[in-house]
Design a protein around this nucleic acid. Structure first.
Lengths: 151, 151
DNA sequence: TGCCATCATTTGAGTCATTCAAAATAACGG
DNA sequence: CCGTTATTTTGAATGACTCAAATGATGGCA
């Protein structure tokens, strides 16, 4: 299914191969941009006693070793993806927090160099597109139509 | 001091002129990119009984009426600025959360149009530069020098 | 100039995502 | 197969922020 198997990923990163870690990686492979509780819900379907704390631990270890990437959109809970190494960006739904990848942005390279770095050692430029996903657009339209003339 | 006076800003936005609101605006004028607790600390110097809840309320009202802008960098607490209306970006220190404005980014306009919008109605493109501020660079260098050969 | 409806502030409790810490358990090199 | 060390579990705690009810102040209007 996945081109690279979870155990190999883990060993390659110097992490022990454990069942929770494999399960989290496979969950993330099937649902990119999932939040910790969503990962937990999916994993817990097969293994109800796996604690959410373990999911947090695993996600921390994966991101720490560069096997996963953490996305923290505004005040939405953090989300995780296995797609690392390429500098892609994200589109986030302001309402529900749904995330989509943005593979390529025209003019991306120039964005990496602000005119004045204020003494900062800039490591990365992160671009986030905010908007409404298809579902939330539909809900917004419906809600607008239901609003009476007054109030 | 400030080109526009706080009471005028408030009235213009349809908000009542109250002492906490004026105080928060003036604090923000003197310390852009301040977090709620920093604003509270500054305001409380003159008015010790002003609750942090009120600061949260005021900041919510100001951002809601477009008088202030809220910046939410990753897992750092939210920060606020009075500079609104222009689409400027930010440089954030990964360590301490310090923020600097980035006035102009070459290639900014193209960034507003992702190749594939995945059905999203994109409203804004937000660019965040992550790095280390001058102070945290110095600390990092010092810490690296203090690390022994082993461990 | 004073009244009062409405908007603000205060107080105190509650939420959520996430982290901390100690004890129990499991991976894997030898 | 064993022991060391990493990992998981359990349970509690944190920080940033929100909710809600009661009190207080603002400013339009008479």
């Amino acid at each position: 299914m996945s081109p690279v198997l979870a155990p190999d990923l883990l060993r390659g990163a110097g992490l022990r191969v454990t069942e929770p870690r494999v399960a989290v990686i496979e969950a993330l492979d099937g649902m990119p941009h999932a939040a910790a509780d969503a990962v937990h819900a999916k994993v817990a379907a097969h293994r109800p006693d796996l604690s959410i704390q373990t999911v947090y631990n695993v996600l921390r270890d994966l991101t720490g070793r560069g096997l996963a990437r953490c996305i923290e959109p505004g005040d939405h809970p953090a989300r995780y993806e296995l797609r690392v190494g390429d500098n892609h960006h994200h589109m986030v739904c302001s309402t529900c927090g749904t995330i989509a990848d943005v593979d390529c942005v025209v003019g991306q390279a120039p964005c990496l160099s602000p005119d004045d770095d204020h003494g900062f050692a800039v490591a990365v430029a992160e671009i986030t597109f905010w908007g409404l996903c298809r579902d939330c657009q539909a809900v917004a339209v419906k809600a607008a139509a239901a609003v009476p003339i007054h109030d």
